[in-house]
């Protein structure tokens, strides 16, 4: 790695002051697992890194809201989210997803905020958090704003965040009456990066879908919702025909990109098949 200076501010305000919106050579570092890879490969050569690890308890808490929603601090490590009883109670799909994410050592170090700010389309959490309707809380010099996870990422490793804005927390609304699942589809080995990450969150009653949120990652340049597939389900009775139509709509509308995990045609088949299976998993559960 090429040399850089390391700042370790003790407050969020101090950290923000050390970041410069016009200086791409200065960046925040949280756990650093993704950034270390980028620096070791020479993809990124910072002049200065601003460590967020001393910013204190404001960014490391997990809080359940009165309405059943949950807020997870940006500096909470993925392993702590995986083991959190509060997170499991609010949205069990998150812990299930994290078990498929990278390996134990990386999850012991990587943080939630870092995972999202990294904006790699192959990450598992973004489609899941989109399906759950989550938002990030972001703080910058002008104050705080909330951004829906689906609006956070603009392209490969690109976000809407200014260089002097930091994610401070992720808010997940209450999931009352909903069931969610995540399908990580790898084309070669089980621990490979996904060719498709697919998350669904469904509210169904009496065999009818009231509301469905469907999000994919890895097969597309950014994680995103699939509104036509969602519309194909809304208000419809749960039948094989309905699910097949949703699968076809999803495969047709997704702006799929080819990479060494699969061609466009292959990934469209994955979307069509795995959406139907994922829906069947949550709907059969909800029907009980």
């Amino acid at each position: 790695m090429s040399p850089f200076a390391l700042e370790e501010p003790a407050s969020l305000a101090e950290a923000l002051a050390l970041l410069d919106p016009d200086d791409p050579g200065a960046r925040a570092i949280a756990g650093g697992t993704a950034l270390m890879l980028m620096m070791k490969s020479g993809l990124y050569r910072p002049q200065r890194l601003v460590s967020l690890r001393r910013l204190g308890p404001a960014l490391t808490g997990i809080h359940t809201a009165a309405d059943g929603g949950i807020e997870i601090g940006a500096m909470v490590r993925l392993a702590d989210i995986e083991r959190s009883g509060k997170v499991r109670a609010a949205a069990p799909v998150i812990a299930e997803t994290l078990l498929t994410h990278s390996n134990v050592r990386v999850r012991n170090v990587a943080t939630l905020g870092g995972n999202l700010a990294h904006a790699d389309p192959h990450m598992d959490l973004p489609p899941v958090l989109i399906a759950l309707g989550a938002t990030v809380r972001v703080t910058g010099p002008a104050g705080e704003r909330s951004i829906a996870i689906e609006d956070l990422v603009t392209g490969y490793l690109e976000t809407v965040l200014a260089n002097n804005e930091l994610i401070t927390a992720v808010s997940i609304p209450p999931q009352t009456g909903r069931r969610a699942t995540y399908a990580k589809v790898t084309a070669r080995t089980a621990d490979d990066w996904p060719a498709l990450g697919l998350a669904v969150s469904v509210h169904a009653e009496d065999g009818v879908v009231r509301d469905a949120r469907i999000a994919i990652g890895a097969a597309t340049e950014t994680a995103r919702r699939l509104p036509q597939a969602e519309a194909a389900l809304a208000g419809r009775a749960v039948t094989d025909t309905t699910l097949r139509e949703a699968g076809r709509a999803a495969a047709a509308e997704a702006p799929v990109v080819a990479d060494h995990h699969g061609s466009v045609a292959y990934k469209r088949v994955l979307i069509e098949v795995h959406l139907q299976r994922a829906l069947r998993r949550v709907l059969d559960g909800a029907a009980r």
Binding site: E8, I29, T33, M36, L37, K40, N103, R105, V106, V109
Partner: peptide, 27 residues
């Protein structure tokens, strides 16, 4: 591997296994 995949660089930090090749010494 230098990428956190192979586990050869595993050490425990405060009781947690980490890939020491992806961990800044300053941390």
């Amino acid at each position: 591997c230098g990428q956190g995949l192979c586990g050869c660089c595993t050490v425990l930090v405060d009781g947690n296994a980490v890939s020491s090749c992806l961990y800044l010494a300053a941390f």
